[in-house]
Design a protein around this nucleic acid. Structure first.
Lengths: 346, 346
DNA sequence: TTGATTTGCGCAATCGATTGCCAAATAAAA
DNA sequence: TTTTATTTGGCAATCGATTGCGCAAATCAA
């Protein structure tokens, strides 16, 4: 009674047309060894029978899936969703599929995601690693399973792979130079977790700028935030509670942290930018419209995504030319966006 | 020379242990008819050989994939990413995978996404339809291919499926009632595209509230925005250019539109909320921190996601009990979040 | 000791599509 | 007319895992 209608397969089409599955398959794949009339017949029949290819079978046989897996900490962060959009714009026209996973900043979850993608036989894994953890055998596994690995933004240096990164140090240095040029002198740094390169680099840029301008580096003005923004408020409170509080805060982890600072400043009736300069990182959509608007750094997420996808396809095409391990690193220079939160007459 | 290392299969494990693939498969799947010692042996060997199951093969054979496909207009909208996070929190513990696609508000792209998911043999497709288009055969196709369809938020009435929706009309009515209670009388409505139920419902709620309070409905105060926010500015300009402009604007499409209104008001030196009340929709993260903060409506995205996933699993379990077409609709009541942008002493 | 169960594992078919090789049929060349 | 190419499409193996069936050994019951 409950006889499940089964999906139409190429065998059904073949039977209906008195052909073989081979011919049907070749027709649907535009194989040149098929008569144009036969092809048209097959295609028409396929449409008529509402045939859908079974990618599982096809990919199994072909040993690849025309699919790229993406693992990011959070898909709803502006930067990451921009990167995804960028990747998509390229893969779309190449008819590649995307499987998007989020690690929620959890190392465990990240490993699970990667394993799933390996099992799914994706052709390439694009990943920005989560903050926690320092065991990266899951990444090595990707390589060991002949899957192209592309790390971006947050990369693990010791894992050799294609890498697309931002020049965080340079961008950060530039931001701090700007703060100094605006007359701020006691510049605090709210840094991101230091087990990630990007946040170390941003700190390095900050230090470099201070040194270049012969400003004393005050340890109490440098605090590390974690990626979980639950503790942000506490850190901010600590800065303002200092006997000699900062006159500018560079929230180098991200704009949400900068927002927290802005709110805290409002609560304390501190005027921004007059009494406090604030600079964020990543140019979230809202930074343009807070009041005052927030100076931040744009990372060109969409462009980065495009670069990533393009790099993959380039590698794919030129695969045989260079047998050496592909371990190129492409660096992109982010751009400082100066807005009201740091613009005061010196 | 370039002999590709091939992935380890259950046959390789079987050979190494002098067993058959059946036994290996059964061991890895915790089949009861396997000796505990054998199982341990196999599992140890599998780990040693760094074996990874080939989901393609397994899913092909089993005819299902333990995978749920999600199609949303944009993954980086707060509401949608919350829903995804909600779904994920449930599917994660059930060891289901997620394939996330974004339609970019394009009907074409949406169809492509859905087709891909059908080909991938996902067990269930969760979708919030894009704004354009009124041909929904792709949704019917999902059903025809025995894939569980769950529509959420933006649903197509005439397609029978499980549906999880927000009570937009009620939420909208409540928001407008609040505006009226705050003393606003010339309340404009910036509505969303009217080919989508949710936006029609929101308009209905607006009208209902005005009628209930015997406020004349002024056609010139009701404008439809599209989902593409490029034209927002123009619409807003039109409202302010009216001979008798509004004293409140309900940006019922979303908070980004409300933000646009807030910016425009700033440009015109209109005081919010004194001279202009503003209410948005969807409780984007930034609404809490603009100045003034924006009154909006929270849609409980995470909860909705959980409900969606739970509904799927419930349906899966009780599948045989009810042979009738599953076409339940679950409605969730959004919540008005009153903030500064509408709080004036009457 | 004998018959009935249970346990443990192998055999072989199967899921749906792809593809190397082969064989007609037709066309072109000799 | 015979030989050689070319075109078109069928045959059957294959990708890797699952699973119904069957058989032998082990265990239990009597």
């Amino acid at each position: 009674m409950d006889l499940k209608k089964k999906r139409v397969t190429i065998y059904d089409i073949a039977r209906a047309l008195n052909l073989t599955a081979s011919t049907v398959s070749r027709s649907l794949n535009n194989n040149s060894r098929i008569n144009e009339d036969t092809r048209k017949l097959v295609i028409a029949k396929a449409r008529e029978m509402n045939y859908r290819a079974n990618s599982l079978a096809s990919n199994l046989r072909k040993g690849k899936s025309q699919t790229i897996g993406i693992v990011v900490p959070r898909i709803n962060q502006n930067f990451f969703s921009n990167v995804i959009a960028g990747i998509e714009s390229i893969t779309n026209e190449k008819n590649y599929n995307l499987i998007i996973c989020q690690s929620n900043e959890s190392h465990e979850k990240e490993i699970k995601c990667v394993n799933t993608l390996i099992n799914q036989h994706v052709d390439c894994i694009v990943i920005s690693v989560s903050a926690e953890g320092d065991d990266y055998t899951h990444l090595q596994n990707v390589i060991d399973h002949q899957i192209q690995l592309i790390q971006f933004d947050r990369v693990v240096e010791k894992i050799e792979s294609l890498k697309v990164t931002n020049n965080n140090e340079e961008a950060s240095r530039e931001a701090v130079e700007h703060l100094i040029a605006s007359g701020y002198r006691r510049i605090a740094l709210l840094a991101g977790p230091q087990n990630l390169d990007i946040f170390r680099d941003r700190k390095a840029g900050y230090l470099k700028a201070l040194r270049a301008n012969k400003i004393t580096i005050a340890d109490e003005l440098i605090l590390d935030a974690d990626t979980n923004n639950e503790h942000d408020a506490e850190l901010i409170r600590r800065l303002f509670a200092l006997p000699n509080p900062p006159d500018a805060i560079f929230a180098s982890r991200d704009d949400f942290l900068a927002l927290g600072v802005l709110e805290a400043a409002n609560d304390l009736n501190l005027k921004v930018p007059e009494q406090l300069g604030i600079c964020g990182y990543s140019n979230e959509r809202f930074t343009r419209i807070t009041s005052p608007s927030i100076t931040t750094i744009d990372q060109f997420g969409v462009d980065m995504g495009k670069t990533i996808a393009q790099t993959y396809f380039d590698e794919l095409d030129g695969k045989d030319e260079e047998t050496a391990v592909a371990t190129k690193t492409i660096s992109i220079k982010p751009k400082l966006i100066v807005r009201s939160s740091t613009q005061r007459g010196k």
